[in-house]
């Protein structure tokens, strides 16, 4: 199953750092997502774009994870050569990850 079926996501940017939230629709799925969508897996998933580390923060009260990806926006919003300099569309790519239920 794709992550998109059980969670939603939004991307934010600050300089060369992208953060992507991952929020489960149903709180019961939080543990599943927390267990499987690790920082290491996310770093691997974005390996072509993210040159720095990926840190994961957990916010159980919101049923959410927050992935902070450094050196992820081609040098930062002002000087990136990417078409999507802010990385707004990265959330859609995250939701394409597989999850086992």
């Amino acid at each position: 199953m794709k992550l998109r079926e059980i969670a939603h996501s939004r991307t934010g940017d600050k300089g060369n750092i992208s953060n992507i939230s991952l929020i489960v629709y149903n709180m019961d799925d939080y543990e599943l997502v927390k267990e499987q969508i690790t920082a290491i897996k996310v770093k691997e998933w974005f390996q072509n774009a993210v040159k720095g580390e990926v840190i994961r923060y957990e916010i159980p009260s919101l049923g959410a994870l927050n992935f902070v990806m450094t050196n992820a926006l081609g040098g930062g919003v002002t000087r990136s050569l990417s078409l999507d300099r802010h990385g707004k569309s990265l959330s859609s790519f995250l939701l394409e990850m597989d999850i086992q239920t």
Partner: peptide, 29 residues
């Protein structure tokens, strides 16, 4: 859903959102 997405928008460590007014903690919202 709309509110949760915006809570985490452009946030790094949710327990330490630093501004000149306060180091805010959004981790227990």
């Amino acid at each position: 859903g709309t509110v949760k997405e915006q809570i985490l928008y452009e946030i790094h460590d949710p327990s330490n959102y630093m501004t000149p007014d306060v180091n805010a903690d959004f981790s227990q919202i």
